[in-house]
Design a protein around this nucleic acid. Structure first.
Length: 422
RNA sequence: GCGAUCGUAGCUCAGUUGGUUAGAGCGCCGGUUUGUGGUACCGGAGGUCGCGGGUUCGAACCCCGUCGAUCGCCCCA
């Protein structure tokens, strides 16, 4: 016997209730995205490596050690997309989508990151994504966040709060960064090993270190608010005011920074409240939706300065919070308890399906056990075809209670079989 | 990349200080029973105990390696 190959580490074969919850997330996203008039885009799954290395930043973990890169037959370095934003930005520039600005787009699909798999984290994972490109006004941030908030509500996800911060404009961010480096360099030897390295590569990240050795120095670290320009402050105030007006609850998270180089101004994450049911289901992967403004990104790809905001959310993580959703109850189960009635049963099931009912036929295996099999499928209505004492019989049993289409279903059945026995 | 735990039937698992032919429940297939009914019983298929090596008279069990899974660190969705 030939050996069955294994799936690639960190990939998933999603099936059953998990797959239904996954589809529920995507379908809900598609519906909400239309409400906000975001246009659907389909993007390549791979790009030239430089699209990501230039847009995301060479020093980030994503680029420096998590990309699936390979040379194609022409010797060009290509990379399986680790995120959507860089590819969308590239498409915006190379297709002249400036003519549509401000452009609201949404997409979803697989992303790839070479990481150690764990709960809520995979090497091939899936995101939903929304971007507003060519809009520099804070109202764009508000609209984008309102959509995210409504999406989570329509998914029925509870106990998740919007953590909001501003990184200021380019000048503010640099000044703050410099002050942070100075602050932490003074106590460098007392920081954790990880943070000593962060000091050089990404000092902002020290702020959300979990290490106790770092926490002491984080408390009195310089605050972004002290470095904000008047414009940056006004921008953030407009965003928060707009969220309040839109009824979106948020909380200020001064130490929230995003890992990628391109973020400016607004940065945000939706995170489950500590100790909540949602937090328990997610394990240590707490962020379910994150994003921000990336006004500098287009320039890094050689385009004109173009303001933009966007977010992405992990479908798997959202689906973990939507357990059991998306699975539809079986409406009609039809059992052929006698081989000679299989034709009638098959006809009945197709009638129901054409009338818009989901229906399943039980006409295989031992005829005596088909009724029990049908019942185990827990249908709202169970129809049985049989022959008893030489008489053909067909019965309709309402198995569940509170089934809204019971009358319709009964009528469809009665229209075909005017007598129960004949 | 680092750390911890774990790999036995399709699924969930048991398997004594190492000792005959590795078990159960569920599921699947067949039969009987019941006959407006989620019944009960009988039988069957299905495992080179993740893979490779070692220790031993003898390994599912002990040791090493490897692959995979899970959880955590890092980072992120």
């Amino acid at each position: 016997m030939a050996k069955t190959p294994q799936a690639i580490r960190g990939t998933q074969d999603i099936f059953g209730a998990d797959a239904e919850a996954f589809a529920f997330v995507v379908e809900t996203f598609e519906r909400v995205r239309r409400l906000y008039r975001f246009r659907r885009v389909e993007m390549p799954v791979f790009e030239k490596t430089e699209v990501f290395s230039r847009a995301i930043g060479e020093t980030t973990d994503v680029v420096s050690k998590e990309m699936y890169s390979f040379d194609d037959r022409g010797g060009e370095s290509l990379t399986l997309r680790p995120e959507f934003t860089a590819g969308i930005a590239r498409a915006y520039l190379s297709n002249g989508w400036q003519q549509h600005a401000p452009l609201k787009v949404a997409t979803h699909g697989p992303l790839f990151r070479y990481e150690r798999p764990q709960k809520g984290r995979y090497r091939q994972f899936h995101q939903i994504d929304a971007e507003i490109i060519g809009a520099g006004e804070p109202q764009a941030d508000v609209e984008l966040l309102a959509m995210a908030d409504q999406l989570l509500k329509e998914l029925g996800i509870e106990g998740v709060t919007l953590h909001l911060n501003t990184l200021g404009d380019g000048g503010s961010r640099e000044a703050w960064r410099a002050a942070l480096v100075e602050h932490f360099r003074a106590v460098k030897d007392e920081l954790s090993e990880d943070s000593q390295e962060r000091l050089e590569k990404n000092p902002l990240r020290i702020l959300d270190s979990k290490d106790r050795r770092d926490r002491r120095f984080v408390a009195d670290a310089p605050k972004i608010d002290d470095f904000l320009s008047d414009e940056a402050r006004a921008f953030f105030d407009t965003v928060t005011g707009g969220l309040d007006a839109a009824g979106v609850k948020w909380t200020r998270a001064e130490s929230l920074v995003r890992g990628l180089d391109y973020y400016r101004h607004t940065a945000f994450e939706f995170i489950p409240a500590e100790g909540s049911e949602a937090a328990g289901k997610l394990g240590s992967q707490s962020t379910i939706l994150g994003g921000g403004r990336y006004d500098g990104l287009m320039e890094s790809l050689g385009g004109a300065p173009t303001p933009a905001v966007g977010w992405a959310a992990g479908i798997e993580r959202l689906a973990m919070l939507c357990e059991g959703k998306g699975t539809e109850k079986l409406e009609i189960a039809i059992a052929a308890e006698n081989v000679e009635r299989e034709g009638d049963a098959a006809e009945m099931v197709s009638i129901f399906r054409r009338r818009g009912f989901n229906a399943e036929l039980f006409a295989t295996g031992s005829p005596r056990k088909r009724f029990d099999k049908a019942r185990k499928a827990q249908p709202a209505i169970l129809i049985s075809f049989d022959i008893r004492d030489g008489q053909r019989t067909q019965t309709l049993t309402v198995a569940g209670t509170g089934y809204g289409r019971e009358a319709d279903a009964s009528k469809i059945f009665a229209d075909r079989w005017t007598e129960v026995n004949r």
